[in-house]
């Protein structure tokens, strides 16, 4: 069976895997950041990603703002929506069981997705790639836009990870993750830090949405489909582990691609098989820290 596989097919699938992995990595990183500080599983993440893509589509079609502008405006706008959500909905719930906040994010996700579907329908809306053309590598054709997505997501993930691991701001985040009261007792405005961190996580989701708009179609359910796999990524990587989320995101994207080449029927299932195996062998996830 192996000798039937052409390099074009293999590398073509690996590229798709790398693209999917880029989105898994960025989305699960945002979830990990939010969970780390707030202990809330943000079920609105997929909808916030979808809003990023819709924001880009609306900016282009109503205001004539091109992709590059949307890449900046959409994360800021959706991030601001996220901060509002944190102040109005999540903060009042923070002293209750974290399950309430989880349910609240899920409720908001359902409402927002429903509203968008009501307004724009369920069919995908096209969004043209801002960079056309590509390069023939001999064994495959690589569109420039896909190359851009992979590079941009790696840079964003690495940058965010470096920020959290090595900056002063990151030290506050890591410390507040362990003991928010003590960090606040140093005079640090932890409530504001939580709002901004949630905004950052949501902004990252929206940024992924803008990146995704030219690749997948812009539709109300584009996020919910992706999120099922992203939650598997988070569980495999270790809930709250940022580096774990990033690395697992890419690996899972590639694992799906390889499965697609050799046994296409299992391609959409492989993430969950891996998740079950990891849960059985290392229930806290592969990259879990001592805290998790």
């Amino acid at each position: 069976m192996f000798d039937m596989i052409s390099p074009q097919l293999l590398f073509g699938q690996l590229l798709i895997g790398l693209i999917n992995g880029s989105f898994y990595a960025m989305l699960s990183m945002g979830l990990a950041i939010i969970f780390g500080l707030m202990n809330v599983v943000n079920f609105a993440h997929g909808v916030q990603y979808m809003l990023g893509a819709f924001c880009a589509w609306l900016l282009l079609n109503y205001l004539g703002v091109p992709y590059w502008g949307a890449l900046i405006i959409a994360p800021l706008a959706v991030g601001a929506f996220g901060m509002l959500m944190e102040r109005l909905v999540l903060r009042p719930l923070q002293h209750l069981d974290h399950l309430y906040a989880l349910l609240a994010t899920y409720a908001i996700a359902l409402i927002v997705e429903g509203l968008v579907r009501q307004e724009y329908g369920s069919t995908g809306l096209p969004y043209a790639a801002p960079i056309s053309g590509g390069i023939n590598l001999g064994f495959m054709f690589l569109p420039y836009y896909r190359l851009w997505v992979v590079v941009f997501s790696i840079v964003t993930c690495a940058g965010t990870w470096l920020l959290i691991e090595y900056s002063k701001l990151g030290a506050y985040l890591r410390a507040a993750n362990e003991n928010p009261n003590i960090v606040e007792s140093f005079g640090i405005n932890v409530p504001r830090m939580i709002t901004l961190t949630y905004g950052l996580g949501v902004g990252l989701a929206a940024l992924s949405g803008v990146l995704a708009a030219p690749i997948y179609q812009v539709s109300p359910s584009m996020g919910s489909g992706l999120m099922i796999t992203v939650f598997a990524v988070v569980v495999i990587g270790g809930i709250g582990s940022i580096s774990g989320a990033i690395v697992t995101g890419y690996i899972l994207g590639l694992a799906e691609a390889i499965t697609k080449v050799f046994y296409p029927e299992a391609a959409t299932t492989v993430a969950f098989v891996v998740m079950i195996v990891v849960l059985l062998l290392k229930p806290n996830g592969i990259f879990s820290s001592e805290k998790a």
């Binding site: 007792s185 005079g187 932890v190």
Partner: peptide, 8 residues
Amino acid sequence: KRIYEIAR
């Protein structure tokens, strides 16, 4: 007052 205000 909140914790961070007291600290300050």
